[in-house]
Amino acid sequence: MIAGSRLEKVLASGQFAVTAELGPPKSGDITQLKHHAEALRNHVEAFNITDNQTAIVRTSSIACGAALIQMGLEPVIQMTVRDRNRIALQSDLLGAVALGMKNVLCLSGDHQKFGNEPGAKGVFDIDSMQLIKALKDMRDEGKFIGGESLEHPLEKIFIGAVANPFADPFEYRVDRLEKKINAGASFIQTQCIFDLERFKKWMEMVRERGLHKKVYIMGGVTPIKSLGAARYMKNNVSGIIIPDELITRLQGAKDKKEEGLKICIETIQQLKEIEGVAGVHIMAIAWEEIVPEIVERAGLYPRPAV
């Protein structure tokens, strides 16, 4: 056990873990985010709070995380390297720890071009790999990137990273996972899985190298609400693969929402059967209220007590 967060405890116990994503609002009013968190309280171990996802200005991840902690819930703070340099990232991490946050997820972040401030200067002072390593060194060596020592040892944090088996070059995606483990990642959340065949192939390569024993891999899933949403993702989101069969299946369905849900639930059930998959991360952005139903129908309810 490294940090002893609830998420880590469930993963370490060998039980299939569940996390869900919450997207902060484009305002200073986080009532709805708190409302969603409350509704999901008993259905997930922890809540990922996105960091200005798709480069759209939103309430900060750590601020929302603090609100969750006040509610007795557990956040997974997302940190991208797009908007903050190493000074700000390290400072914010210290702040997050001071407020009681234990889980941190490191990402590159979508390019600023996609958001509502396309003229912004992308920072990218360090990359996600270097961020993982930096957080690990702060935690384990008590050192900042520049080499100076922290004044006081850091409360332990559980460091996560993302993996995208659907990005290219495909052969490299397992190398990259290994690199993230070597940098200091203890858990992984993957990009949304729609192409299970490709995911299984990736997991096979992961197991060949024994990487599933070195890191907890949580498969990412997203319930698709409509045919339009599926088509949009297929054509416009780079690094997501939506197989044609899935589009056809949605086309043929009377109730698209129900079909999208079924696909999501079936994916989770399949993930549970894949050796080396330690949990699921549900990304139902703008459809958070559906998460309890997904968790229940996927047979993941009640959540274990740890």
């Binding site: 590159s108 390019h111 990359d127 270097q130 993996a163 990005a167 780079s238 690094g239």
Partner: peptide, 20 residues
């Protein structure tokens, strides 16, 4: 690289093209 990364391709790299 649109993000000046030093440790390999980000998750937006698809079919040889940049996410941007």
């Amino acid at each position: 690289c649109a993000k000046s990364l030093l440790n390999g391709p980000c998750g937006g790299s698809a079919e040889g093209k940049c996410e941007v």
